[in-house]
């Protein structure tokens, strides 16, 4: 029963307590760069989720074979091979998305979130908890990107996934789809997360 509980916990912590872009402040480059629309955020989130889970599983399986002196190069080679697979897959199946995300797909390699999880969790834990941990963090990351992408798209274009949701009275805030908007939205969301936490802490005490 204990293991069952902890597996659920490994998954859930990625969704709120350790949600990466807002709390741990890792994996920020893609979170800021590609979230100018909901679809782009979702695609980037799923791509990172795939690389995250597979890299963690592979490292976890081979964790006893990888010598600790060369572990970082080994991880990087594993991650970059997986990213190459993702990149080629997207280019073949979803050329439009692949074009929109551009060099940010290969940049998943240096996403510190993935290397951080591999180093901190997969290298020390068996496969099953690793799967739950990386799934949780990856899903949390995808959700964060969708929230940011959705928010910026609504404010910047008045639409969600290309559908107009706000009427013609709405004057689009162009700033939101520009780089500056990404910083402003992320700053605001971090403040919101802090606010909810403070409220929760106040209630608990």
């Amino acid at each position: 029963m204990a293991t069952h509980n902890s597996l659920g916990h490994e998954f859930k912590k990625g969704l709120w307590a350790d949600i990466h872009p807002f709390r741990v402040l890792l994996g920020l480059c893609p979170a800021l760069a590609v979230t100018n629309s909901f679809v782009n955020g979702l695609a980037m989130g799923l791509a990172a989720l795939f690389v995250m889970v597979s890299a963690n599983v592979i490292v976890s399986v081979f964790r006893k074979l990888i010598v600790s002196e060369v572990r970082i190069p080994a991880y990087v080679v594993i991650i970059s091979s997986l990213v190459t697979i993702t990149d080629l897959f997207l280019a073949a199946m979803f050329p439009a998305i692949s074009k929109a995300l551009g060099p940010y797909i290969p940049l998943i390699i240096v996403n510190c979130m993935i290397l951080g999880r591999v180093e901190a969790f997969a290298a020390k834990n068996p496969v099953l908890p690793t799967v739950m941990d990386s799934l949780g963090i990856g899903v949390g990351f995808t959700i964060s990107l969708c929230i940011m992408g959705g928010l910026r798209e609504v404010l910047g274009f008045g639409s969600i996934m290309g559908f107009q949701v706000l009427g013609s009275w709405f004057e689009p805030w162009i700033i939101m789809i520009l780089p500056a908007g990404a910083f402003l939205v992320l700053g605001g969301l971090i403040a919101l997360v802090n606010y909810i936490n403070d409220k929760k802490a106040a209630k608990a005490s």
Partner: peptide, 19 residues
Amino acid sequence: PKVFQGASITFLVAGLMAL
């Protein structure tokens, strides 16, 4: 303000710099 302290205000500043 307390909720904006730390990372949050840094990003808001970065946004203004980008502008």
